[in-house]
Simulated assay, not measured.
Amino acid sequence: MLRTNTVKQRLAGTGESHGLFCSIPSPVLVEMIGCAGYDFVVLDSEHALVDPQQLENLIRAAEAVDLVPFVRVPESDPGAILRVLDAGALGVVVPHVRCRADVDAAIRAARYAPEGMRSLNGGRVPGFGRIELTEYVRRANAETMVIAMIEDAEGVEQLPSILDGGGVDLVLEGAADLSQSYGVPWQTRHPRVRDALARVHAECRARDVPFCALPRSPEDHREWRAAGVRAFVLGEERGLAARALRAHLDLHRENHE
């Protein structure tokens, strides 16, 4: 059933929010992320193969541990936006936003009239009738976040017009794909990439739109916090698990030697 979006509340105030990307479609893993104390999870249906029933159960797992569930949908797929929100996601991460038309299409799919034209439906999010449907429409529009991922040079250039039209609740940087867009694949610390991220943050700040950073080191985290950023995606669970597994093995090998 529809819940309060505590991440949206924090960003409207002075609080910070920390999340993780999650690509392994395991409800237990989602529960672990919530129990570890993260505020939100970005369930990945862009790069990962997740069937609709799996996704709904991942969202249920997040709800069970008070973890705000967002879903990264495939690029230019309004149908996917509808389905993940009907499954209970409290926000959609829209990849490769390059122009205002991309945002307009996402808003139309994600919000009910008069803000959009999301297809009307009952089901699990209105609590199978526990929330009166006209009240549900109002609350869903208030709680659902449209999160634009800026990961192309074109998106950086078009960001003023992307944001000036309104409707974007959070901008998430994508330094990896951005590096490729600038011709320096995987060089996420390249000066061109860092300058682009600074431009994205500045445009967001000028328009009072929250910006979410993906710090790749504690130093990055400190720098973004000092710049006023209050939302962070701290990596992906696969990378964290792989590094922890290697470190665990290395530790025991060193002790044995």
Rank of each mutant, 00 (worst) to 15 (best):
5 N>C: 06
6 T>P: 02
8 K>G: 10
10 R>K: 15
12 A>I: 03
13 G>D: 09
19 G>Q: 05
22 C>Y: 05
23 S>G: 15
26 S>H: 09
28 V>Q: 13
32 M>P: 00
32 M>H: 10
35 C>A: 15
35 C>M: 14
37 G>T: 12
39 D>H: 13
42 V>N: 08
45 S>D: 04
47 H>S: 03
49 L>Q: 12
49 L>D: 09
49 L>I: 14
50 V>C: 09
50 V>E: 05
51 D>I: 12
53 Q>D: 14
53 Q>Y: 14
54 Q>T: 15
55 L>V: 00
58 L>E: 03
60 R>N: 01
61 A>R: 02
61 A>M: 02
64 A>Q: 09
64 A>D: 04
64 A>R: 13
65 V>G: 06
68 V>E: 02
74 P>R: 00
75 E>W: 12
78 P>D: 08
81 I>S: 01
82 L>D: 11
84 V>P: 02
85 L>K: 01
86 D>F: 04
89 A>W: 05
89 A>N: 01
91 G>K: 02
92 V>D: 02
96 H>T: 11
99 C>Y: 03
103 V>T: 04
105 A>T: 12
108 R>C: 13
111 R>A: 03
111 R>H: 14
111 R>I: 04
113 A>Y: 14
114 P>N: 12
117 M>T: 05
123 G>M: 05
124 R>K: 12
127 G>L: 01
128 F>C: 10
130 R>F: 11
131 I>A: 05
132 E>G: 07
133 L>E: 10
137 V>T: 11
139 R>V: 00
150 I>M: 10
150 I>A: 02
154 E>W: 01
160 P>F: 08
163 L>D: 02
164 D>E: 14
172 L>D: 00
173 E>Q: 14
178 L>P: 04
181 S>V: 04
182 Y>T: 00
182 Y>D: 06
185 P>D: 11
187 Q>H: 13
188 T>S: 11
188 T>H: 11
194 R>K: 13
199 R>C: 07
200 V>L: 03
201 H>I: 06
204 C>I: 00
205 R>G: 04
206 A>N: 10
207 R>E: 04
210 P>E: 08
211 F>H: 03
211 F>E: 03
214 L>H: 03
214 L>D: 05
216 R>H: 13
217 S>Y: 09
218 P>S: 07
224 W>D: 05
227 A>T: 01
229 V>K: 01
229 V>Q: 05
230 R>M: 08
232 F>W: 06
233 V>A: 15
235 G>M: 01
237 E>G: 09
242 A>D: 12
243 R>T: 13
247 A>T: 13
247 A>L: 10
250 D>Q: 14
250 D>F: 11
252 H>Y: 12
